[in-house]
Every structure is written in structure tokens, then in C-alpha cells.
Amino acid sequence: MNLITLENWYSRYREESLFGRYINLDHIGPLLETLAHKIDIKEIALSENNEPIHLVTLGSGPKKLLLWSQMHGNESTTTKALFDLINLLNDTNNEVTKNVLQQCTLFIVPILSPDGARAYTRHNYNNVDLNRDAQNLTQKESKVLNSLIKEIKPDYGFNLHGQRTIFSAGETNNPATVSFLSPAGDQERSITESRKIAMEVIGKMNVVLQQCIPNQVGRYDDGFNINCVGDTLENIGIPTILFEAGHYPNDYNRETTREYIFYSLIASIHYIAQNDITGEGYEDYFLIPENGKCYHDVIIRDVILEGKNVDIAVQYTEELGENNVNFIPKIVKIEDLGKFYGHREIIGKKRVMRNEIVTVEIVPEVKLLKFYLDSELFSIELAKR
């Protein structure tokens, strides 16, 4: 698919009302109300804390795709990209849209865990990870998704997530801005026919992304866990694609990554619409490097601390503030970090770091990690929200 076309579409169809990391029903509710006048949107269930869960249905084609986002409430980048996609598919004058909607029916759950989204947490209201509840089905949200799978009998599952800033595309100095996975369906991680189909689609998305983020696409670990939704779907033969929205340099709001997820969604859905996929092209999937864990948010290199020459790793922790997410810097390692990379690096040049490394509160919810190298003051500030 032509990259210039995708860039133009993103500029045109990007949902401007959604921005940043904190996305919950208060943000998407007005959009759903407006869209309900044009497309099929239903409230299909309530969460454990009685927040509505919605299903958006687009198209009338025979190929059925089930997409769900914010199974983990603090993984919101893919939700933003879904609304960008919905805006595109709502344009009936677009020839690609017409083709997709003739060949496919899309069933979209924008936020599966509305309680987790409101609290900005991985877990739901009962502190359960919904992506470990695929077999026991103890939570209302898990039962909703399971019911949709049984009712729709999707030909493809799109499992939309976000990943931490620690991940690299292989053991390299390239962040894993977008990662994919065709989940395993058994302990042996067998390359089944349904996995091959998902792998072929992922390979096509990677071709598109290499044009704009070369060497920044990763392949997520396929260790088997039947309690995970993707593994459960593959276990019953449904081709499933796990999307992981990762870090792009200086993009803690994940707005740049959002654009690449949008490209990936369009590329995959258009490929499915245009082709009867057999999985014959699955081997390109293995050209994507498996994710490494080579990054910290900040590395302070080559400093003298208490008489020792060390590196210091700083990682941001995410804390919900007043309708936004704050990223608070915390020291996580003091050692030789020669095998790691920082999204930001401060080179100490063997200067002495004073012992008083403290987190200093400047104003409510804004903090700086302040330190001295010899007499020079450095601050690692709150990351952009």
C-alpha cells in the first residue's frame, strides 16, 4: 500500500478529539453518540463496575474480523487508532473503504475494560488481568468477549495492546515502536495453518512499516499460555494478530506510534479484503526480529558515585493525575549498563555525582530528579504527557 496515501489518510481521518495516554469512556462517549447516527453501535454489556461496553459494526462482507482494544485499561494507543480507522471506513466515497466493507464485516470493541481505562490500570475493577482470564472467565468483561467470539465466529481476531518503553527490535539500539505476534496455540508452539495465515498478514504489515520506521518493528515472544485470549483463539483455530503499540523517540504521548498503528490496521484489513489468504507467505514473519529488552528511559553514563565508576538507569513510572498521566522518573539500576540503551542519555565523563540524588517535588504532580555532576546541575524532568 502506498505510504503517501496512508499519510494523507491519517492527516484527513485522525480523530482530533482523542489525544495522549489517558483515554476512557468520557473521551469516546461523545464520539460514539455522533457515530451512532451513521453506523451500527450498540451497548452490549456492563463492566464489573457497571460501565457500558460497546460494539461497533461496520461492513456487510463475508470475512468477519473481531477487534478489541484496552483489554488493559492503560494501553490506549490502539483505541485512538481505531477511531482514526472508523473515520476512514465511514467515508463511503473512498474506494478502499467501499471494497473493505463489501468484503469484510468488522466488529470493534473500542474499550473492553472501561473500569481499567478510567483508573488507568492494567487490571479491571476486581484487580483481574483480563488477558489471563480466557479460560476461567471469572469477569464480566471476559464473558462479553467470549460470547462475541462464539456468536460471531470471527475469521480473524485483532488483539490490540500497548507495550513498555523497555522493548527493542531485536538486541539493537532500535526501539520496538510497533510489535506483532501470531500467538501459539499449544505448548510446542506449533506452526499451524491458522498461525500461518496470521503470520502472512503480519508480514504484509511489516513491509508497509519498514518504509516509515525501518528496523523499528519487533516480534513479540510466543511463549504459550492458554489463559491468554490470543493463545485460546489460536488453540481453537482462529488466526489472531496481537498488536503492540510501543515507543517512538520523544513520543510518550504515543501520538506518532498511533499513526503507525493506523497504517498497520488499514494495511492488514485491506490485504484481508483483497485476498484469500492461505498462509503460504508466512515465512516473512520470521524476518521480523524478536523483541529484546535493551532500553531504559534515561541512562546517565560514566559517572563516579561513592568512588565507583557506574552507569545509572532511570525509568518512568506512570501515575494518573488530574485527567492525565504523569511520568515520574525513578532510579532502577546502578551498575555497568554497557549492553543497554537510553531513550535519552546523559554522558558523565567520569565526573563525580553527589550522593544527594533525590526526587524533588516542584509543584503538585510535577517532579524532577535532580543531581550534580561536579558542580553542574542536571534535572530529569517529568516526561511529556
Rank of each mutant, 00 (worst) to 15 (best):
residue 213 I to A: 05
residue 73 G to V: 04
residue 341 Y to A: 09
residue 372 Y to Q: 15
residue 370 K to Q: 15
residue 337 L to Q: 10
residue 227 N to F: 00
residue 282 Y to V: 10
residue 112 L to R: 06
residue 367 K to S: 15
residue 45 A to I: 07
residue 305 L to H: 13
residue 108 I to G: 11
residue 360 V to F: 05
residue 240 T to F: 01
residue 323 N to V: 02
residue 150 K to S: 13
residue 24 N to E: 12
residue 54 H to M: 03
residue 372 Y to C: 14
residue 158 F to K: 01
residue 331 I to S: 00
residue 17 S to T: 06
residue 218 G to D: 05
residue 99 N to H: 05
residue 86 I to S: 06
residue 85 L to Q: 07
residue 321 G to M: 06
residue 54 H to R: 10
residue 203 G to P: 10
residue 212 C to W: 10
residue 95 E to F: 08
residue 44 I to S: 14
residue 142 S to W: 07
residue 103 Q to R: 13
residue 54 H to P: 03
residue 32 L to W: 00
residue 182 S to E: 10
residue 94 N to P: 07
residue 106 L to E: 09
residue 172 T to V: 13
residue 375 S to T: 15
residue 14 R to P: 05
residue 304 I to Q: 08
residue 18 L to K: 11
residue 90 N to Q: 05
residue 198 A to T: 09
residue 157 G to Y: 01
residue 206 N to M: 03
residue 67 L to D: 15
residue 216 Q to I: 05
residue 208 V to T: 11
residue 27 H to K: 08
residue 169 A to P: 05
residue 34 T to I: 11
residue 375 S to Y: 09
residue 141 E to T: 09
residue 170 G to L: 06
residue 335 E to I: 13
residue 145 L to S: 00
residue 171 E to Y: 08
residue 134 A to H: 12
residue 287 L to T: 15
residue 148 L to P: 01
residue 150 K to F: 04
residue 31 L to V: 09
residue 341 Y to N: 13
residue 130 L to K: 00
residue 15 E to D: 03
residue 269 I to Q: 07
residue 206 N to G: 07
residue 324 N to S: 11
residue 352 V to G: 08
residue 39 I to C: 12
residue 251 D to V: 13
residue 24 N to I: 07
residue 359 T to C: 09
residue 266 I to S: 05
residue 64 K to P: 10
residue 218 G to P: 07
residue 179 S to T: 14
residue 81 A to Q: 07
residue 40 D to G: 01
residue 37 H to N: 10
residue 11 S to L: 12
residue 34 T to W: 05
residue 7 E to D: 12
residue 351 R to K: 07
residue 87 N to T: 14
residue 44 I to C: 11
residue 119 A to H: 03
residue 172 T to R: 12
residue 133 D to F: 02
residue 99 N to L: 04
residue 385 R to A: 06
residue 132 R to Q: 07
residue 132 R to I: 03
residue 382 L to Q: 14
residue 343 H to I: 02
residue 93 N to T: 03
residue 175 P to T: 04
residue 20 G to C: 05
residue 4 I to S: 15
residue 380 I to H: 11
residue 223 G to Q: 01
residue 123 H to A: 01
residue 84 D to Y: 11
residue 294 C to Y: 12
residue 72 H to Y: 04
residue 137 L to H: 09
residue 132 R to G: 03
residue 220 Y to S: 00
residue 233 L to Q: 12
residue 48 E to H: 01
residue 238 I to H: 11
residue 363 V to W: 02
residue 59 G to P: 15
residue 331 I to A: 00
residue 336 D to V: 00
residue 152 I to P: 08
residue 281 G to K: 14
residue 7 E to W: 03
residue 196 K to T: 04
residue 29 G to P: 02
residue 199 M to W: 00
residue 166 I to R: 04
residue 93 N to Y: 02
residue 271 Y to I: 14
residue 29 G to S: 11
residue 206 N to H: 11
residue 349 K to H: 07
residue 192 T to H: 10
residue 204 K to F: 05
residue 219 R to G: 06
residue 157 G to A: 02
residue 321 G to S: 12
residue 62 P to H: 09
residue 155 D to Y: 00
residue 23 I to Y: 11
